[in-house]
Design a protein around this nucleic acid. Structure first.
Lengths: 234, 234
DNA sequence: GCCTGTTTGAGTCACTCTGACCGTAACTGG
DNA sequence: CCAGTTACGGTCAGAGTGACTCAAACAGGC
């Protein structure tokens, strides 16, 4: 009786959190996906997601999803709500309202300890070279990528992709990876340095990469949240 | 037994939709609020909200909340998701996850047929002259107002506040009401007219207001969604 | 060591956009 | 008829941007 009375009713209005975690690796924007252990979804990939527990905030659920499904504990990573997907038929079995989150982090965590989680090149998602997505996650993923692209324009969020200290070349590589364009190094420098509190000099120089080049100054994140005026993508 | 077994479990994961409907009246930004019929909330005001039904999309719930609680049926009004509020203790009794919506509409609907619904000046909300808000709606309302202010900058959404045909003076009054500033009429005209497809001329002239003035040309909404470059608030 | 290629950092120039401002047109109310 | 108000068009200086050049400082190959 308890099983009949509680479980179906609860499933009919379940709330879940799905996290689109973006990072940058080898100059490319990558997205974390996991293989659901549901047999009906074999071969498909999904955003890491968990049901919201009683007495658990949505943010906590997002962190728990990343931790339990990919072994990623990034309390300092940027985490923001994306939007909520609640179409009645988005889940084949139950009515699940999903609160989607967007997470940004530097490429440091190795989810290899969880063999059902891996990063995918965002350019491959939606093509034959990429994964096929479960549920309605093919709607959430483009929204997440577009949100990230848009937020780079008018916020200082690009620094969430790099570790401190960083060079302006590394920060420029973030913009180029997320936007998929090439930016003029000189104009980018002028814009970033002239925006108050976007970045602050950390002192010292970074070693050049294998291809050579003049050593670059090192910077840390500044206190600015928004960019005035915005850095518009070409 | 049925009451005990279903209601508490279902309430523990209930999903609701709350709508922040903004409009402009007498040159001021106003917000629709309703008096909940819950005795425990007597004297407080709340955003119109309803529980999400099975087989009902979130957008449908938003429209139903406006209709049932304020008699407003505005299928053409702008409606977009704001964000989802899911703190475990945001509702005193149950765990209710609320998907907040932002709605923008011209001041045409008269919610007077519902005597528990009225528009409040957004400048008064949060002051002694304004209403005291129920639940955590004092968190949602500022987010809604800030979203509207921000969206006017980089989208053509200001036209959602006026009825067609409109004059550039009326459109400028929208920006001035939402942003709470005075804008230079000439510069505003130059910006709006030079932005492709923001507005299109409708032909004819509008009668001047009671204070006189030269008759203004009439315009309709254009096809543009975003403003490039943005119209930044001073 | 020397040359080539690369990246950083700094600067120039033309163009666009913006804010502040001015003048005229066309109406209302007294 | 006059004063006040709004609409519309224009000018001007300053800020911001894209395209570009040049020198500084490194790595790697010969």
């Amino acid at each position: 009786m308890t099983g009949i009375s509680t479980t179906p009713r609860a499933a009919a209005c379940a709330v879940a959190v799905d996290v689109a975690l973006l990072t940058i690796q080898d100059g490319r924007l990558r997205l974390l996906l996991v293989e659901p252990d549901t047999p009906a979804l074999a071969g498909r990939w999904a955003l890491p997601g968990r049901r919201v527990r009683d007495e658990e905030s949505l943010d906590d659920t997002a962190h728990r999803a990343l931790d339990e499904l990919a072994g990623i504990t990034a309390p300092d990573a940027h985490l923001e709500q994306l939007r909520t997907y609640g179409d009645p038929d988005r889940d084949a079995t139950d009515r699940v309202v999903s609160v989607a989150y967007l997470a940004l982090t530097p490429m440091t965590d190795a989810p290899t300890d969880h063999d059902r989680a891996r990063f995918w090149d965002t350019d491959d998602i939606g093509t034959s070279a990429g994964p096929s997505l479960a549920y309605d996650h093919d709607r959430i993923v483009p929204d997440a990528i577009e949100r990230a692209r848009s937020k780079l324009e008018y916020t200082a969020l690009a620094t969430a992709f790099v570790e401190e200290p960083f060079t302006l070349g590394e920060l420029r590589a973030v913009y180029e990876a997320v936007w998929g364009v090439r930016l003029d190094a000189g104009n980018f420098r002028r814009k970033v340095v002239s925006t108050r509190d976007f970045v602050v000099e950390a002192g010292g120089l970074a070693r050049p990469g294998p291809g050579g080049g003049r050593p670059a100054r090192r910077y840390r994140r500044g206190s600015a949240q928004r960019l005035h005026p915005a850095m518009l993508r070409p």
